[in-house]
Design a protein around this nucleic acid. Structure first.
Lengths: 160, 160
DNA sequence: GGCGACTGTTATAGACCATTACAATTCGCC
DNA sequence: GGCGAATTGTAATGGTCTATAACAGTCGCC
C-alpha cells in the first residue's frame, strides 16, 4: 500500500530578518550564522518557486540525481543526500507513489533495486529544473555574475 | 513544571559527501545546493565543538542575543531566530530550566517579560563563544583570510 | 470605557530523520 | 564448495523541531 502524497508544508516559514537596534554580538563574525541566514532565504525562494509542485529540496535533489544516474541504488542515494537509508527509502516511496520513478530489479545483484525515472518523472523534473534554476538566478541577482561565481567557488571549497 | 533537559541528539549526522563517479547535473550550478552542503558541514563542526554542552545552533543564538540585549522580549527573540513565538518560548524555557536565564517582569509593560542571563548563563555563554568561534575559524582555515571575509560579505549580501 | 493589538502561554499536529531490527542476497576467504 | 561477514531494502518506533490555533492578561488609543 502506497503512502498517500500529503500536501507539503514547509518547516520554516519566516525569513531570519534583521531586527533594527539589536546587538548581534559575535553572530556577525560567524560563518555558520551567515550561512544559516542565506540558506533560509534560499529555502523560502525555493518554496515560492515550486509552489504547487509539492516538492522539497531533498525531493528535488533526489529527482535530479536519479534522473542523471538511472539505476542508482537507494543506499547511494542516501549518501548523496546525507541521510540514512531509511530516509532514502521514504524519498523513493514518495517518487514512486506519485508515479515519478520506479524500482527495477538489478540483473547482477538480487539485493539491490535500481531507481529509474518514469516518463512522467522526466517531464516533471524538466519543469522543476527550469523553475528552480530561474529562481536561483533571480535570487542571486543582487550579486554580480563574478560575485556569484566566486560565492559558489568559496562554498564548495568550504564544504570540501 | 519544567521540562527536563533532554540530552540533545543532532538531527543530521552525516556530511553530504561527494560520491565519486556520479553525475550531479544542475546541482553543481545551484547556490541553494552549495549553501546546503556548506551549512551541513558547519553544523557538524558546531556539534563537535560543543559536545557535552547540550547546545544547538538556535540555543546558542538565543543565548548570544539575550546576552547582548538583556531584557529582550520573547517575541523579538523569535523574530531574530526566524521562528514563531511558541518556539522562542521553548528556547527560553530551556535556558531557564538550566539556570542560564530568567524572566523578569518589565516595569512598564505588564504583558511582556524580559529575558536576562544569570551569572551562570554569562559564564556558560563566554565558554561557548570561545569554543564556537575557535571552531568556526578552524573550519574556515581552508580559506585565506581575504576569502573568508569575502564569503561573509557575499552571504550577507545574499541574505539581505 | 471599550475595542483592537500585542504578549506570553498551552495544546495539538505534522514533517523529517535516526535508530534498531530483520530477511534476503552477495561477497570474501579458507 | 561453504560459511560468516557485509550489504541492501524494508518496517516499526521514537525524538526533535516547528507551526498553528486558541486563550487570558495587558496596553494603547479614541
Amino acid at each position: 500500500m502506497q503512502k498517500l502524497p500529503s500536501p507539503y508544508r514547509p518547516r520554516v516559514l519566516a525569513p531570519i530578518s534583521r531586527v533594527a537596534g539589536l546587538d548581534y554580538d559575535v553572530l556577525d563574525e560567524l560563518l555558520g550564522y551567515a550561512l544559516r541566514r542565506a540558506q533560509v532565504g534560499m529555502f523560502l525562494a525555493f518554496h515560492v518557486a515550486t509552489r504547487g509542485l509539492d516538492i522539497t529540496p531533498p525531493r528535488f535533489t533526489a529527482l535530479v540525481i536519479v534522473g542523471a544516474n538511472p539505476g542508482i541504488g537507494q543506499s547511494s542515494l542516501g549518501k548523496v543526500l546525507g541521510i540514512a537509508r531509511s530516509g532514502a527509502m521514504m524519498l523513493t516511496d514518495w517518487m514512486a507513489g506519485r508515479g515519478l520513478a520506479e524500482r527495477r530489479r538489478r540483473p547482477n545483484d538480487g539485493r539491490a533495486w535500481g531507481v529509474h525515472l518514469t516518463a512522467r518523472g522526466e517531464e516533471m523534473l524538466a519543469r522543476m529544473k527550469r523553475r528552480v534554476a530561474a529562481e536561483d538566478r533571480k535570487r542571486a541577482a543582487v550579486l554580480e555574475a563574478r560575485e556569484r561565481r566566486e560565492l559558489l567557488r568559496l562554498l564548495n571549497k568550504l564544504a570540501r
